[in-house]
């Protein structure tokens, strides 16, 4: 095994990682030329900035409301309340800005953790098969049978009375846990399928014959084939979680008042829609749709760019 020619072969083998890297740079080059991707990235980055540094965009406190100034129409820029005030007299712009963070933070946590769980379980179960695969597949099936929203509805309403505190993380902890619990299975399935497809290919067998360890084969040779698919799923998944958060908040069981999120604003705004204050619904709805649209566009183009079969 320590034969120099073998190690030379292994070295050559590892260099075959270069085309996979050029796939990424090529994908990047394709994406850079698309105007819709550039626009979507600008929108996404803008809302990320809003979530990270809310004080750059508004100087008002979303929780400080003056009931005497309730439902002022938008005064646009230059006025005291550029986007008007809501039924309790809170500044809509401040609420929009501060409502960005819970939505995006929730989305990133949920997607990040589920990708981690999904990729690990998918690789292990696809690679070892046998008992590991049987157990993982059963678990995946059990969780797939209960739809995400049904589970969230059931669990969040059963845990409705439990208060975890007011911090930025603890207000979203409950929806984050429940959504993650029921969102990882997709990645497991994709990665498992891709591992099954790859692991019997000649170059993987060659690596095994050359004495590469299981871990090395999984990480260096098998996983790079799956990672493109998974990456392409991520922006779309982020968009989906942002949408689901809005649904849960709308039903009163997601992020809860007094914390502000777009979903809560949409829920409040919909009550005033027919009462002549359409802007209370349209502003948060617009922000939600712009963000979701941006992530969906990025995801869609990424999938095309990373799938060599469609070239």
């Amino acid at each position: 095994m320590s034969d120099p020619s073998v190690s030379a072969l292994i070295a050559e083998e590892t260099q075959s990682g270069v085309p996979s890297r050029s796939l990424w740079s090529e994908a990047f080059r394709t994406l850079r030329r698309r105007p819709d991707v550039i626009l979507a990235t600008i929108v996404a980055v803008f809302f990320l900035l809003v979530a990270l540094f809310p004080f750059l965009f508004t100087s008002k406190d979303p929780q400080r409301c003056d009931i005497a100034e309730s439902r002022l129409p938008p005064q646009w820029f230059g006025g005291e309340h550029p986007f008007g005030t809501n039924a309790y007299g809170c500044d809509v712009l401040a609420q929009l800005v501060h409502g960005t963070r819970p939505s995006l933070l929730l989305a990133f946590i949920v997607v990040g953790v589920s990708v981690l769980i999904g990729v690990t379980l998918g690789t292990v179960s696809g690679y070892y098969l046998g008992i590991v695969d049987a157990v993982v597949s059963r678990i995946v099936e059990v969780f797939l049978v209960i739809p995400l929203l049904l589970a969230a509805l059931l669990l969040l309403s059963l845990f409705r009375n439990i208060d975890l505190g007011d911090g930025p993380v603890s207000t979203i902890a409950q929806p984050a846990i429940v959504l993650t619990m029921f969102a990882w299975m997709g990645y497991t399935r994709y990665v498992r399928a891709s591992v099954l497809e790859t692991k019997n290919l000649d170059y993987v067998t060659a690596a095994r014959v050359l004495g590469a360890s299981d871990l090395r084969i999984m990480v260096r040779h098998v996983l790079p084939n799956a990672i493109g698919t998974v990456t392409a799923l991520v922006p779309t998944a982020i968009a989906a979680v942002i949408g689901t958060e809005a649904v849960l908040a709308f039903l009163g069981i997601g992020v809860r008042p007094p914390a502000v999120s777009w979903g809560i604003m949409i829920e409040e705004g919909s009550q005033w829609f027919t009462g002549g204050s359409e802007y209370l619904l349209l502003f948060p709805l617009g922000c939600l749709m712009a963000t979701v649209l941006a992530f969906v566009v990025i995801g869609d183009n990424l999938r095309d760019a990373l799938d060599p079969k469609l070239k």
């Binding site: 968009a239 709308f250 949409i266 939600l288 979701v292 969906v296």
Partner: peptide
């Protein structure tokens, strides 16, 4: 289809 995706059912 992207537009449809950006419109959750409840919206």
């Amino acid at each position: 289809s992207i537009l449809i995706d950006a419109l959750p059912i409840f919206v």
